[in-house]
Structure formats: structure tokens, C-alpha cells
């Protein structure tokens, strides 16, 4: 009994091995339509950013120096940690362990909520230092892309709240809904990983 539980906790269900041959699409397929499309749309924004960056190296390099890399890195770890607990929570929910799943999703929510708060700690000093979207092309890109991403994060947090509510209140939580919300949240994480490299790290 405990073996099965441990196995399930590691996310490797007995049924999964059988399903492995066919392949399992986690959650609602239409959410994957959204995820792939969003990845493509942001992909275009990323490439266009690179295109304009190489035409304005000096400007971008000097503007980039004004960014707070520490907060950027911490935010990256926040989202990664949040994603971890979402993945762990999803595995627990699938194993029928609602209590564990709920706990893990609360942790995920906490990590995720740290992101917008830290972002404010980044933006407010920057805006006070007169670094606004209108300052130059780099900062326009910075605010627009991180702003779009922030909207995605906020939406993801709302979705996570609904997942938590579902896990808390219903006897038979809808696994498909949990997986769908999880898929969205991981996408938000992936987008940030690219943004972090493009805006903060690359030279």
C-alpha cells in the first residue's frame, strides 16, 4: 500500500506506464492550444526584441545596466519553486491525496504571489529614478514584455486559487482542471526563463 503511495507521490503511477505508450496530454487539450500559441506569440516578440537589440547594442547595454539583476534572479527562483510545488501538487492530486495536493498548492501560491510583489520592488524604484517606458527602446521593451508577463502571472495566480478551491471543497476534485491550471502556470514559468535571459543576462 505504502509502495503504491510512494510511487504515486513520485508521479509515476502504475497507470501511467501503461498510458506511456499512447502518450497522455495533461489537462484540457484546448489549454495546450493556448499554451503553444502563447509560446509562439511571445516567441515572435522575443525574436523581434533581439532584432532591434542588435541594431542598438550600446543603448541596450547601457540601459540594461540599470536593471536589478538580483531581484530578477530571485524572481526566477520564485517561479521555479512555485512550478515545482504545482507539479508535486498535481501528482498528489492524481494519486488521490487531496490533503497533500492542497498543501503543495498553497506553497506554490505563496511562491507565485512573491513574484508580483518583488516586481513592484523592482519597478517602483526604477520609475522613481525616471526610467519609464518612454525613456528609450530598451525600457519600452522591458516594461511592455515584463508587463505582459505580469498579466499572465496574475491570471495564473487567479487560476491557482480556483484550483485550490476545487481541491478544498469537492470530494472528487477534477484532476483535469488541476492539470489544466498547472499547464498554464508552467508556461508562465517558461516565458519568464527566456525573458530573464534576454533582458537581464545577455550582453
Amino acid at each position: 500500500m505504502t509502495d503504491v503511495a510512494e510511487d504515486s507521490a513520485t508521479g509515476v503511477d502504475q497507470s501511467d506506464r501503461a498510458a506511456g505508450a499512447r502518450g497522455h496530454v495533461p489537462g484540457d487539450p484546448s489549454m495546450w492550444f493556448f499554451v503553444i500559441g502563447d509560446l509562439l506569440i511571445f516567441g515572435v516578440y522575443f525574436v523581434v526584441y533581439m532584432y532591434f537589440r542588435v541594431q542598438n547594442h550600446e543603448l541596450f547595454l547601457h540601459s540594461q545596466a540599470r536593471l536589478n539583476l538580483d531581484i530578477g534572479a530571485i524572481n526566477t527562483v520564485m517561479l521555479l519553486s512555485s512550478s515545482l510545488f504545482v507539479a508535486l501538487g498535481t501528482a498528489a492530486a492524481r494519486a488521490g491525496n487531496s490533503a497533500d495536493a492542497l498543501r503543495r498548492f498553497w506553497v506554490a501560491l505563496a511562491f507565485g504571489a512573491a513574484f508580483p510583489l518583488l516586481k513592484m520592488c523592482e519597478w517602483i524604484p526604477e520609475i522613481s529614478a525616471a526610467l519609464t517606458p518612454g525613456t528609450n527602446l530598451f525600457f519600452m521593451y522591458y516594461y511592455v514584455m515584463t508587463g505582459m508577463h505580469l498579466c499572465h502571472v496574475l491570471l495564473g495566480l487567479i487560476i491557482m486559487c480556483f484550483v485550490i478551491r476545487n481541491l478544498k471543497t469537492s470530494q472528487q476534485p477534477k484532476i483535469s482542471f488541476v492539470e489544466t491550471g498547472a499547464t498554464y502556470w508552467h508556461m508562465v514559468d517558461v516565458l519568464w526563463l527566456v525573458l530573464f535571459a534576454l533582458l537581464y543576462l545577455m550582453r
Binding site: S30, F33, G37, V144, M148
Partner: peptide, 18 residues
């Protein structure tokens, strides 16, 4: 899927803010 595509519409409107 049309609902999601419409959400992208909303996103592109937002990107027009600058």
C-alpha cells in the same frame, strides 16, 4: 479554442498601449 484565440486578441490590444 476560439475563446483562447480571443484572449490573444485582447493581448494584442494591450500591446498597443505604447
Amino acid at each position: 479554442w476560439l475563446g483562447y484565440y480571443t484572449v490573444w486578441q485582447y493581448m494584442t490590444e494591450l500591446i498597443a498601449a505604447p
